[in-house]
Structure formats: structure tokens, C-alpha cells
Design a binder for these strands. Structure first.
Lengths: 337, 337
DNA sequence: GTGAAAGCGCTAACAC
DNA sequence: GTGTTAGCGCTTTCAC
């Protein structure tokens, strides 16, 4: 099953390889007579010609591959993003290489190097930390790079994310409207833009409602259920009364609810809680989680489109910051104070 | 930020490119004097040399890329598989390209062609249908290919999956042990090996317990919650009494539970139900789902190892069929008849 | 509109 | 142990 090369197609069509190349390339097709195009295409079809992208890439220094860097594909936040990106990329004839950094900076460094070695045309990065040397490197290299979900302090790169500020504000407003005044925020890690921005939005929204934020923000070490458990333990230990929690994401909310339940606190009778992202199955929990719905698939798709634009347009770097609209989905975990 | 080429490294180290190549290649490093290796490596480091995998691949006809073909990354069954595969592959210096077929055969055809054009060294396929021309093509092409999760009727390719037979048998035994006799199976689609094999295992297990399978198997059109809903509707309409359900996977179980709840049937009081796969969050439902735990990450990892073996060993095709052990996790959805 | 020739960056076969 | 040479499969000037 040896692979058919362009030369063979050309020979079969009775033309020079260069002509065959032109006939097969949509870009250059019109430099060739229609009848030749026909003959070449037929020959290619007949022989089952599959172009060698490596060889083409070597020549054109374009690989038609985009890399997507994810911290943990197992976190249901990311699959929809991957999917959105893949669809757009595939639609444009690009291939997606996926790399899961397992939240490990050293691993990520190696993977990025490997991707670059493979000559990828661009990166979509979902792992950005607030201060991120790797992303800074990427930005410095001039390789088209789009940040998704999380931004970076340093690099001025295009970014596609959710309107976090508005999401958190919706939560606080909803809770305040239900009469809650002692509202606590389980903040995401300070080395992520989402953690920082959701926390500052929380503070702003509380202020706007004339509510105090003294000791109302608990920092979590990560975005996992376990980090949520730990935070809730601290909350309980602190002994400060609260009637509502705004968690920086769904997983934190889940972990916190578990611990609180172990302490005999039931939801929404004893406390209300909101999540963020609306992961799959959140509506199936008991009670179903009130949370902020984020258009994750769109996020991936828009990120991919932004990247493609940069790769193909060649007309310099746009640094568009796109914030996708979010929506509060009120379900069972929030009730009157 | 022009990319540094091997020539430049060689020049900096004062050697011929070929020598630099050897020094940098672990395979051929011992054909070069230690001091030269030192010099070349230092030069490469200093210049920030990133080898061009495309060029190497063109020369060696090996790209160090493996493709993973997934029907729907959004289905939580697949992310753990992806993750397991990615880790093993990355550990061996391979890059993973991911393609999500969206369960669409036409799309899949195009994607496979594109992957082949990119010169991938092998495929891990999680989309296999029972009769699958695309997989047959792949098998015929001689390209290293490993099937994961689902097998194929036709192709004799290595396969890594779960011990479905045993999983279903465990469910039936558990249910029978609780006194259930009217047990129904929500079968997966007949064009998947998992659907077929779980159904036949169900029949066998029922027979072994002296239970009738007359009208006890309902075929679902897919593996989605919605397919589960539809099947449950049919079950209710049919009016045939039942006290327990063995669903071919978790999603089907979830959909069925929803419909049954709408009909006023509560679980486990009015009926028991088991799932398959133990997706994330299944233990968080109310009641938590009794299901068969499958080592999904391992499945991905073993599939990747099998593929690597084939790619690197070159000593012909092994067609090992690996069945990973499963385990019944008894939770809240099963109770006495 | 088509052919000829050169070369993308690397490595393998062969010299020495 | 290291240099020389050739070529992987394709595209792209440049002639004609």
C-alpha cells in the first residue's frame, strides 16, 4: 500500500508535476487550463492520491496544524471548548493537535517545544496563568497565539473568554434580591485571571449593594472539588455566619456543598450557593445547581476563528479581547435568606 | 524570531550539519565523539534550536504523530481515554492529534484522509462501528491502528476495551440477588460492539439465572440521554411489568430515570437500575447511580502503548485483544425487589 | 498555459 | 569520528 506521490498523478495525467500541483491547488488552479485541471483531478482520484502535508509544509512553511493547550481534558469545562475549536479548525482544513498539560508547568514547557518542532501554525492556550513565562515566550516568538478562558497579565495577545464580571454580578444580585446579606465568595486561584477577576467583581458587586466584604473572600488553591472542600472547612472553622456563597466555579461549589452537608447544613434551607460555568450534569444534582451558564463551545469556536484570522490574514497581530455573554441559570441551590 | 536551523548550530559548533544531526539524535549519538556531542548540544541550547519535525519526517517517513479519533469529546466517556493516551504518547515523544467526528461518517472520512495526509504514524480509533468500511480501509492500508472501547466485526486489529460481558453479568447477578426477576435491558445501538456484546451478555446472564428474556431487551438508537428517554417511553407504553433495568450505559440510565420519574416511578423504591462506565458525577446524583466502573484512563493508556509497540517494533502486526477488568459499584439506584 | 530547475531542513548511505 | 552527497515530496520562481 505504498503511498501515491504527485509525480505519479502527473505522469498518469501526462503533465509535469508542477502543473499537477497547480491543478490540485485551489489557490493556483486558475493558472491552468480547465481541461488539464479535469485530467489531473481524475487521475488523482483514480490513484487515490493523498497529498503529503509534511512535504508541502516544508516547502510553504505552513503546516495547517493548530495546537490546543489544555490543563486537564478530564475537567468538563474543556471538552466543549475543544469541540468548538476543532469544528472551526477542521472546517478550514486545519488539524488540531491537543496537549493536556496536567496543570504542570514543566510538562507544558516540553509540550510547547514539541508542538513548535512540529511546525504548528498557531496556538490556542487555555492554561494561561496570570504571570506566565511560557505564554510570554510564545507571544515573543511571533507565533499566532490566542488565549482562551484565561488571560495573562503580561502578554498582549488576543483573548476569548466569558464575561466573568457580569456573571458574578448576576449571582450577587440574585442572592441579594433573595434577601441575603452575609454572602461569601469562594475565590479561584490568584494565579488565574478568572480567579482574580471574579473575586474583584464580587467585591464590586457587594459594594454596590452596600454589603460588607470584610472576611468575605476565601481563596481556593485550585478549581477542583477538593479545593472547594478545603475552603468550606475553613469557612466553617472561621465561625463567621453566612447565608450564601458565590463560588468561583461549579467544582468549588460542589466540594463546598459536600462539606457543608457533612456539617448538617442543607441547601437551600440553611444556605444558598451559586456556581460558575454550568458543567454537564449540574442540572441533575439534588438540588440542581444555580450557576452561570457560559457558552463554552462558542468560546472554543471564536478562539479558533480568531486564530485562523491571524494565521491567514498575515496583516499583523490583532489583540481583540472578546467577552462572550453569560447568563444566570437559577435552579435549586438558591432560596430566600 | 526566525527559526534556528541545524546548519547554524553546526556552524556555531564548527562541525558539519550531518555531525550535528548525529550528535543531537539519541539513536546515533554514539557514532560521535563525546566532546563533539558536548559542543553541539551547547550550541543548540544557546541558539535555542528547535528541530524541524516536518523536515525530519519527510526524510525518515516518520512523523511522531498519532491520531486519536473520537465520536464526541463532549461525552464524558472519552476525555479520560484521551488523557490516558496523551500521557503515554507524550512520554514516548509522540504528539497527539485529536479529531472529533461528531458521530458523522462523512466527516470522519475526510478527517481520516487529512490525518493520513499529515503523515501520522498511527491511529487510535474510538469510533468503530460494527461494520466499518473506514476502519477496514485503515486496516488494509497497513497503517498501525488500534481500536479502543469499540471493536469491529470485519477488521482484525488490536483492540483495547472493557470486559463488557463481565460487567453486565455483575449487574444481572446483583439485581437477581436482590430478588429481581423481571429485569429489562436497555441495549446500546446494534452497530456498536458494545451494544451487541452487552446485550448478548445480558441474555446469557439471564438464562443462567433461569430468567426469561422474552421482550426484555429494548434497543436504543444511540448512547445518549435522549435515547434513554425514548426507550423508557416505549417500556412504559408496552405495559410489561418490570422491577429492574440494566442500561447499556450511564447516559441511557439517566434518560430512562428521568422519564420514569415523570411517570411517578421512583428509584429504588419502584424500580432498580444500573448503568455502565461510571462517568464523572454519577456518584453525585440522587440517588447515586449503581454502575459498572471501567478503567477509562487505563484504556487510553493501554491503547497508546499497543499502538507504540506496533509503530516502533516494526515486527509485524499483533492483534492482541485486551479486556480491562471492570467492577460493579453499588450505590443508591438498586434495592430489593 | 506549461515545463525546467531549485530548494524547504533534515538524515542516511557512503566515503575517507 | 566526521565530511560528502543525495534526496524525502512538494511548490514556486523563472523561462518559454
Amino acid at each position: 500500500m505504498a503511498r501515491v506521490r504527485l509525480v505519479e498523478v502527473a505522469r498518469a495525467a501526462g503533465v509535469h508535476p508542477a502543473t499537477a500541483s497547480r491543478a490540485l491547488n485551489p489557490q493556483a488552479r486558475d493558472e491552468v487550463s480547465a481541461s488539464t485541471v479535469q485530467r489531473v483531478q481524475r487521475a488523482a482520484e483514480q490513484l487515490g492520491y493523498v497529498p503529503n502535508t509534511l512535504a508541502r509544509g516544508l516547502r510553504t512553511s505552513r503546516s495547517f496544524v493548530a495546537a490546543l493547550v489544555i490543563p486537564d481534558i478530564t475537567n468538563s469545562l474543556f471538552p466543549p471548548i475543544v469541540r468548538g475549536a476543532e469544528q472551526v479548525l477542521a472546517g478550514a482544513g486545519f488539524t488540531l493537535v491537543l496537549t493536556d498539560t496536567n496543570n504542570d508547568v514543566e510538562l507544558e514547557r516540553g509540550q510547547l517545544a514539541s508542538m513548535r518542532a512540529h511546525g504548528v501554525d498557531g496556538f490556542i492556550v487555555a492554561t494561561a496563568r496570570w504571570e506566565d513565562a511560557l505564554v510570554a515566550d510564545l507571544a515573543g516568538s511571533g507565533l499566532p497565539t490566542v488565549l482562551v478562558n484565561r488571560r495573562c497579565d503580561s502578554a498582549s495577545l488576543p483573548f476569548v473568554g466569558a464575561d466573568d464580571q457580569r456573571g458574578v454580578r448576576l449571582c450577587v444580585e440574585h442572592l441579594a434580591g433573595l434577601g441575603h446579606r452575609a454572602i461569601v465568595h469562594l475565590a479561584g486561584p490568584a494565579d488565574t485571571s478568572t480567579g482574580r477577576e471574579r473575586a474583584s467583581a464580587f467585591r464590586a458587586a457587594m459594594r454596590d449593594h452596600g454589603l460588607s466584604t470584610r472576611a468575605a473572600v476565601i481563596s481556593c488553591t485550585g478549581y477542583s472539588e477538593n479545593a472547594g472542600r478545603l475552603a468550606a472547612e475553613r469557612l466553617v472553622k472561621a465561625g463567621k455566619p453566612f447565608t450564601a456563597i458565590v463560588a468561583a466555579n461549579d467544582l468549588l461549589a460542589l466540594g463546598a456543598m459536600e462539606v457543608l452537608a457533612e456539617h448538617g447544613l442543607s441547601c437551600p434551607a440553611d444556605f444558598s450557593i451559586t456556581g460558575f460555568n454550568d458543567l454537564a450534569f449540574m442540572r441533575k444534582l439534588t438540588p440542581p445547581l444555580t450557576t452561570v451558564k457560559v457558552p463554552l463551545t462558542d468560546m472554543g469556536a471564536v478562539a479558533a476563528r480568531t486564530l485562523l484570522h491571524w494565521i491567514l490574514a498575515a496583516d499583523g497581530i490583532s489583540t481583540t479581547q472578546t467577552l462572550l455573554p453569560v447568563e444566570l441559570v437559577v435552579r435549586g441551590t438558591t432560596g430566600p435568606a
